[in-house]
């Protein structure tokens, strides 16, 4: 993983999470802005997958557990589409909050992925 890219992902996911939770609690239904924020989070995750696949070939090897890293990454990749799907089906303000919760979960998971990739816990 690339540390700066991890930080960028965490910041974007937190910003998306905060925006969605605030807008949701303010009564907004899922809209282009909030759904788009989750699409952005997902696109960054797909780029992360590409980075993770290419990095070892360029000498950026994981020092931690690679399978555990991919369990997190693949779980993370599934969450934004599920939240977006939910937001499209159930058109209430609470779906906007759900979008925010999903974005915060991604922020935490990306942070954990960085730890798993680069820190030895054993």
């Amino acid at each position: 993983m690339i540390y700066a890219y991890t930080i960028a992902q965490v910041l974007v996911a937190c910003a998306a999470g905060l925006a969605c939770v605030v807008l949701g609690l303010a009564g907004r239904r899922p809209n282009d802005l909030t759904l788009g924020a989750l699409v952005l989070v997902e696109l960054l995750l797909i780029a992360q997958l590409v980075i993770a696949l290419i990095a070892p070939g360029l000498g950026n090897h994981a020092s931690g557990s690679v399978p555990e890293f991919y369990v997190y990454l693949i779980s993370a990749l599934l969450i934004p589409p599920l939240a977006i799907f939910w937001g499209l089906i159930e058109r209430t303000r609470w779906s906007t909050v759900v979008l925010g919760v999903a974005a915060f979960a991604i922020a935490v998971m990306v942070f954990r992925m960085e730890q798993i990739w680069s820190v030895q816990l054993a």
Binding site: S75, W94, V98, A102
Partner: peptide, 22 residues
């Protein structure tokens, strides 16, 4: 509505706990 958010948080925790234990 709050119940729906609760379901979402539970779903994420379910994924986290199950994924980790597997």
């Amino acid at each position: 509505g709050v119940g729906r958010v609760l379901v979402a948080v539970y779903a994420i925790l379910a994924i986290a706990a199950t994924g980790r234990s597997v």
